[in-house]
Design a protein around this nucleic acid. Structure first.
Lengths: 333, 333
DNA sequence: TTCCCCTATGTAACCGCTTTCATCATTGCT
DNA sequence: AGCAATGATGAAAGCGGTTACATAGGGGAA
């Protein structure tokens, strides 16, 4: 059976209270007593009962990572692998064993909130949330720390770690313009998601700044998937074929675009230059290799984890991570 | 603030005990009282405190899915997506919101066990475990149900849901033999994992049954990844090139094998026939499409979830799911 | 009617931990 | 030497549930 704090106390010849103090470092305990208690803990292989601890008001040292993504997107986009890696690795190095939640769209927000509440985590990271942030704000107890990943938060209560997708969209578009493109198609990301809308905004901004007129017809709506990008680009090409550049909402879409272009006999980058977004390995290994605006995905994960684990006293602030333009074959002059 | 059982009791005009009984259905309660209590619960939007409940000995209704896979493998192999999908979907349809654990190899087994213990789940599914099953057996309290996925268990205490990998290996190899292959290379899976060893055994069995002599040199060790398959096959081809069939440990490896073969000028399936394992979409969309021994991945996930959720009174039994030979271009005559 | 059993519900103990409050021994100052 | 401040520790009261045990009606059999 599992030992309890009582047994540790007896073994160490002290009271439960003292054992608790030693474990949590919440009060001064003499060196001597501390040593005794620690020895007892180790000898008994004692694991505190988290339920009891949390019930009594203590922190449990458990954190959760919520992924509001279809499993399709999640598994097909290497971006997520890096984020998760960064998150888990950072957490592990701080002795935390994070738990993952998938929030499939079939479920209600309340369902998720309910699961999170019941799970009683100290801190929760949420990636890809594209609902009303209020749902979370209302449903979760105030003492649970929440950090949003990859999103520009508008909440006073929660912080976020992300990238400036507007700037990213500008970088990508500007690059194509610099390379001589004048008729750039944007295969958007998922426009129900903030990042998708922001990258589109960047695309608009770059046109304005360069004094280029933007044809609304050049904006075709994707959803971050390869299949969808291929489909919408094909539809686009049925109507016009004078494009000379494509800014795809992410690498997956960019790869889809390239495969369609190749199939249709366009030469890349001579006829059409293409750039993606995310900076995944897929872009690197694609043929031709795909230029991209790279997000520090791994760092995104680890920074979020860092914020989650920071002591409660620490004041959190929003963090914007840098983007990097990576030029490869698909957009060379 | 969150309401407690006490407040529900007051609101309903009954005692805490009765509220508890209504929630858990652990004793007979009159229709009338039951209705009152349920109304109170609904009106207050009451969510029981899981910690308190579990502390008091109740079941919490939380289940965990542990994935003992490198995130690399996990994200690159669509097999896992289906398993997770099946698991989550089944659980969701039974009002369970499962939690995922990644067990990165950096951590100690104890670390995982410790996290699991602390998390206090009612039931735990473990996929891809390739350590001593005893670790789990020793560390986890006896009242936690554990089901292993994709593994032939040898434990009296735990059940498993999986496929017969030996038979699968035989099916694949036998198929190639039927197609006329006489010099079949086996790019093994990860031999540190049971499934890898079993598929290899099937490969051996098929040779024996067919009365074919097996060249040990034809067994090249992969690790279920595409990259590794390409590497070891290239090494193999440097020495001999008279092979006429390849049984790859999984689809990922099969795809790697095909790309190497194509590059080296072999024609598929004319010169060399190839078959993979798993039945992922990757096999279907590959060019040429890859024959495979399909696992019911989705069902694997959902069956494990089903076992996890079954009432405690139910006696669990090991389940072997059927495999299916799918013949595609890569192994046609 | 009386006794017994069964149903419906309340009372209170307990799960394992944290934390407030009280106690006691020191230590430092005046 | 006397007293306050300080440090170390124990006792006990919860935290929000579950459940064993007790109690109070009601109905049927004797």
């Amino acid at each position: 059976m599992r030992y309890t704090i009582e047994e540790v106390a007896v073994k160490a010849g002290v009271s439960k209270a003292t054992v608790s103090r030693v474990m949590n470092g919440t009060a001064t305990v003499s060196r001597e007593t501390k040593t005794k208690v620690e020895a007892a803990i180790k000898k008994l292989n004692y694991e505190p009962n988290l339920n009891a601890r949390k019930l009594a008001g203590g922190k449990g040292g458990s954190i959760a990572l919520v992924l509001e993504e279809s499993t399709d997107q999640f598994f097909s986009n290497p971006f997520w692998k890096l984020v998760v890696d960064g998150f888990i690795t950072y957490a592990a190095s701080h002795n935390q064993h994070p738990v993952l939640f998938f929030h499939s769209s079939q479920e209600t927000d309340r369902g998720l909130a309910s699961a999170l509440i019941r799970g009683n985590y100290d801190a929760i990271a949420i990636f890809g949330w594209h609902h009303d942030i209020n749902v979370i704000e209302k449903l979760l107890p105030k003492d649970i720390r929440v950090v949003f990943g990859g999103r520009q938060g508008e909440s006073a209560r929660f912080t976020h770690v992300g990238v400036d997708n507007v700037v990213g969209g500008e970088m990508a578009t500007q690059h194509l313009i610099n390379q001589g493109c004048r008729n750039i198609v944007h295969i958007t990301g998922d426009l129900t998601v903030e990042s998708g809308r922001e990258r589109l905004q960047g695309y608009r901004n770059a046109h304005k700044r360069a004094g280029l007129k933007l044809k609304e017809g050049n904006i075709v709506e994707g959803d971050y998937s390869t299949a969808r990008a291929e489909k919408v680009l094909l539809e686009y090409l049925e109507k016009r074929d004078d494009l000379d550049g494509i800014f795809a909402g992410n690498d997956l879409s960019g790869i889809g675009a390239i495969s369609v272009l190749k199939e249709k006999g366009f030469s890349i980058p001579t006829d059409v230059k293409v750039i993606g977004f995310d900076g995944t390995d897929l872009a690197k290994t694609n043929s031709p290799s795909l230029s991209t605006v790279a997000q520090p995905s791994y760092d995104l994960g680890s920074e979020v984890a860092r914020q989650l684990i920071l002591p409660a006293s620490e004041k959190l602030v929003n963090v914007n991570l840098p983007l990097e333009l990576i030029v490869r074959e698909s957009s060379r002059k």
